[in-house]
């Protein structure tokens, strides 16, 4: 039986819904930019949640119009907080997009697995350590007969 559909419940549901959609987007997507966008959705959802925390149905927006008696007002504090949260969110997203541009220039791809692979290869190259976890060379002593010496490495990514 669906609980009574009070408007308050709908708003809470949308807030939590938005957050879960955002987070699911981040987890499921492969393209980095798509992940940043779904992060935006998640933040919007949480901001809505924050506003709802101080919301009262029978009250008006917390603006002091006249000096006299004021009608019942909504709690202004969460709204102030939401302002800063939104500002921070925008700042972070701008930084994220600029870094995505850099990655696009350097790695020519924004596929998260490819970027991760390239990053590991770079770190190993700068440090000078051989990459031990790769499909071509299984770990540990080879139970099978040794690979013939002169075998060209297909991926060619060996630096």
């Amino acid at each position: 039986m669906i609980p009574a559909l009070t408007p308050e419940l709908i708003l809470y549901a949308t807030a939590i819904g938005l957050t879960t959609i955002g987070l699911a987007g981040v987890v499921l997507s492969v393209h980095l930019f798509r992940m940043v966008l779904s992060l935006v959705i998640a933040e919007a959802g949480v901001n809505l949640m924050l506003v709802l925390a101080g919301y009262r149905w029978d009250a008006v927006a917390p603006i002091l119009t006249s000096l006299g008696e004021q009608p019942a007002m909504v709690d202004p504090v969460p709204q102030a907080m939401v302002l800063t949260a939104i500002v921070i969110g925008v700042g972070v997203q701008a930084l994220a997009v600029s870094i995505l541009i850099r990655i696009r220039q350097r790695y020519a791809t924004l596929d998260r697995w490819e970027v991760a692979e390239r990053m590991d290869a770079d770190i190993a190259a700068t440090a000078g350590t051989p990459r031990d976890v790769s499909q071509e060379a299984p770990l540990g002593e080879r139970p099978l007969p040794p690979i013939p010496a002169k075998r060209v490495d297909p991926s060619g990514s060996e630096s």
């Binding site: 987070l23 699911a24 981040v26 987890v27 992940m35 991760a116 976890v133 770990l139």
Partner: peptide, 18 residues
């Protein structure tokens, strides 16, 4: 330690977090 390193190397961090 190989398992743990695998965990950190290319793990889908967000998935773990969720």
């Amino acid at each position: 330690s190989l398992v743990m390193q695998g965990l950190y190397r290319r793990a889908n961090a967000e998935f773990y977090l969720l």
